[in-house]
């Protein structure tokens, strides 16, 4: 742990990443306390202050119904991070289990599980999400279902390949010869050796999930009003470009900060967690 921190802090890129991610997480967690106008997260209308450019009172300006953009971005982070946590918390265990079981057991389990995975992988993710959102109602819950459905196969592929490589290692043979059960071998022997890659991919994916959630709501299929969401903020703001530039630019930068931060950490984390280093 101490070694991991040393490596993270010795690399300027990861320091930037760590700072950005810390900023995003803190603002999301503390949105209630640090937002200048916490009530603006909901359906508040203040036409007197509508569409104001950035000022001392409203740092990032106000939207078309007069809500503080800064406060709404903080709350939007909360929604994005929540979405990321839920999607990965569901998609990763499913994908990892599928990959481990298919990779270790081989035979028909491999064939059936990996062909299902291939089918999911062959559909463009955004199209699948759009299809699912079209079939179901465009709510936050359905958005999560859609994003989860297209996320797990990538973990299945990743873990499957690692498992295939680990399966021929001597320690797996040793455990088999000792008489350890399949569950032990899969989850206690092989899984720990997949963890560095899984954690690295999760960090990178956190940014992508935020991005794809923003894309979906940009298209009007994600988070619904009045819940603040970065994608829908950008989407609504485009109608008022170029005059009210702050409506699109600031939520856009907010997306960039989050995605960029997670990507930077992910890249360095790969080095930190690699057991051979």
């Amino acid at each position: 742990m101490k070694r991991a921190l040393t490596i993270l802090l010795s690399n300027p890129l990861s320091v930037v990443g760590l700072t950005l991610v810390t900023f995003v997480v803190l603002t999301a967690l503390l949105a209630d306390f640090i937002s200048p106008y916490p009530e603006h997260a909901g359906a508040v209308v203040d036409f007197l202050n509508a569409n104001k450019p950035p000022s001392a009172e409203y740092w990032l300006g106000t939207d078309v119904v007069g809500r503080d953009q800064l406060s709404r971005i903080f709350y939007a982070y909360r929604v994005s991070l929540g979405l990321g946590v839920v999607v990965l918390a569901i998609a990763v265990p499913i994908g990892v289990t599928v990959g481990l079981v298919a990779g270790y057991l081989g035979g028909w389990a491999d064939y059936v599980l990996m062909r299902i995975t291939d089918v999911f992988l062959s559909i463009p993710p955004l199209v699948l999400a759009l299809a699912i959102m079209g079939l179901l109602e465009p709510t936050l819950l359905n958005g999560m279902i859609a994003v989860t459905a297209m996320w797990w196969p990538w973990y299945a592929r990743l873990v499957y390949n690692i498992t295939r490589a680990q399966k021929v290692e001597g320690y797996v043979l040793a455990a088999e010869v000792i008489g350890a059960g399949k569950l032990h071998i899969i989850f206690r022997e092989i899984l720990p050796n997949c963890m560095p890659s899984i954690i690295t991919k999760m960090t990178l994916d956190f940014g992508f999930v935020i991005l794809i959630a923003a894309s979906l709501s940009f298209l009007g299929l994600g988070v619904q009003a009045p819940t603040p969401d970065l994608g829908s903020m950008v989407s609504e703001g485009t109608r008022y470009l170029p005059d009210s530039w702050w409506l699109t630019v600031f939520p856009g930068i907010a997306i960039l900060i989050a995605v960029f931060g997670f990507n930077l950490i992910g890249d360095v984390l790969r080095e930190v967690l690699d057991p051979d280093l």
Binding site: E169, G170, Y171, L173, A174, E189, P192, N193, M195
Partner: peptide, 11 residues
């Protein structure tokens, strides 16, 4: 086994 590098789980 022959190879003690791989016969023990590195993790």
């Amino acid at each position: 086994q022959q190879n003690p590098l791989s016969s023990l789980n590195p993790r």
